[in-house]
Design a protein around this nucleic acid. Structure first.
Lengths: 149, 149
DNA sequence: GTTTCATGTAACTTATTTAGTTACGAATTT
DNA sequence: AAATTCGTAACTAAATAAGTTACATGAAAC
């Protein structure tokens, strides 16, 4: 898993979970989808469990599955549960007392608040089911192509 | 300059430039505002020069200044000139051939395109002059407070 | 025209961050 | 009881970005 691909990797895993026939998959199976190891997966999606997006079970036969229907899981919820902002630009003071810096921070903090609201609003309109449907379209298209050739 | 503070540090410098009486300031002076060194400053704002936001002059008496009135310099332009996206989440393929990944990338790329448009639209409405005006308000307020106390 | 000063930029070093790994306890099924 | 899987802490390794050094280029001062 590369540097800024936490979101895309998580979605990758979640769509595989949405499409999984078996239902439960181990963190090792999930890890193989994104070419990493099980601990990284468990750590990455721990927040999704706390948010009630996925459910995990320990012990023999344990593993992970979606906690609800993919139609009810929006990307906004996933982003929030991952605990990583989409807009990582910093506004931490580095020159306490500098009024110029304070003015800069004020405008950027305002921007961030409004921007995050807008972005989450957009992401709230896309669900895991939407991505899964697109996957199926691609799969079907590929199948047809194969038959045609 | 900390990890994700390229934007805030650059704005910090630019507002100082907008407020500078002398006009020209050396990269060493600019660097002192953000507690770093001149090479980092020159490297960071090189893109702003190419974009015609600031102008630099070499040699004795050389240095940096705004290339235009701060009223005409929007944060959108600055962000673009910095050459760093506000939304650094990755959508690079890591499992070529995986249709699930392709569906994920498609939705995220669409989102990014629309989101960046929205964000730049918001930032286009804020200029360096706006931040400078806020700085002056803060400065005046502090002055009054000091007198009052 | 030589000295001084400042930028422009490449190459290298250091620091920071994050992914990856190891290890092991807790929980659950067979 | 044995096997399996998660949960998590602690550590290691790799990647990234800032910081630094070095020096060529260009411009003003003398």
């Amino acid at each position: 898993m590369k540097r800024n691909s936490k979101l895309s990797s998580t979605l990758h895993i979640l769509v595989h979970m949405a499409e999984a026939r078996e239902g439960i998959q181990t963190s090792e199976q999930l890890a193989s989808f994104i070419h990493t190891n099980p601990v990284v997966v468990r750590r990455t999606i721990a927040g999704l469990r706390e948010a009630g997006i996925v459910a995990s079970a320990r012990g023999h036969g344990g593993g992970w599955q979606l906690a609800r229907a993919p139609e009810t899981i929006s990307l906004a919820e996933i982003c929030t549960a991952l605990g990583e902002t989409l807009l990582p630009f910093s506004t931490a003071p580095e020159s306490p007392g500098c009024l110029v810096e304070q003015a800069v921070i004020a405008v950027l903090d305002d921007f961030r608040a409004e921007a995050e609201r807008l972005l989450l609003q957009k992401l709230a309109r896309v669900t895991l089911a939407d991505i899964a449907a697109d996957f199926r379209r691609r799969y079907a298209a590929l199948g047809v192509t194969d038959h045609a050739v």
